[in-house]
Amino acid sequence: MPKKERKRLQVVISDEQDALLTKTAYELSSPERLISKSEVVRLAIEKIAREMGEDALLDDYRALLEKDEVRDD
């Protein structure tokens, strides 16, 4: 069975954001299954996309992006 093709995305994150990713991955992990930081990012993308479909929290997300010091310019 061929492997599922995946796209790679490289982003620059702060030390604080990396620490949040690490903490979240650790908290989501269990003795039976370790969760990677990449899996946390994929989960967050899906969650945000679902919430955008429901028009929930969009202003909160926009405010976080405006506050963010790391921009894609």
Results as ranks from 00 to 15, higher is better:
A25E: 01
A25S: 10
A25R: 03
A25W: 03
A25K: 02
A25D: 02
A25G: 06
A25N: 04
Y26K: 14
Y26W: 06
Y26P: 00
E27V: 13
E27N: 14
E27R: 15
L28F: 11
L28T: 00
S29W: 02
S29M: 04
S29I: 05
S30W: 01
S30F: 02
S30K: 07
S30P: 05
P31A: 02
P31Q: 03
P31D: 06
P31I: 02
E32R: 15
E32V: 12
E32K: 14
R33T: 11
R33A: 10
R33W: 05
R33M: 07
R33Q: 10
L34I: 08
S36G: 06
S36T: 15
K37W: 02
K37F: 04
S38T: 14
S38F: 04
E39F: 07
V41N: 00
V41M: 13
V41W: 03
V41S: 05
R42K: 14
R42Q: 10
R42E: 13
L43N: 05
L43V: 01
A44V: 13
A44L: 14
A44K: 02
A44F: 10
A44H: 00
A44G: 11
I45V: 15
I45N: 01
I45M: 09
E46P: 01
E46W: 02
K47Y: 12
I48P: 00
I48G: 00
A49V: 12
A49G: 00
A49E: 09
A49M: 08
A49Q: 10
A49H: 08
R50V: 13
R50T: 13
E51D: 12
E51M: 12
E51I: 02
M52R: 12
G53K: 08
G53L: 09
E54I: 07
E54Y: 10
E54L: 15
D55I: 09
D55M: 10
D55Y: 13
D55N: 15
A56I: 11
A56E: 07
A56W: 08
A56C: 02
L57S: 12
L57E: 01
L57I: 04
L57W: 05
L58Q: 05
L58P: 00
L58T: 11
L58F: 03
D59Q: 13
D59A: 13
D59L: 14
D60W: 13
D60E: 12
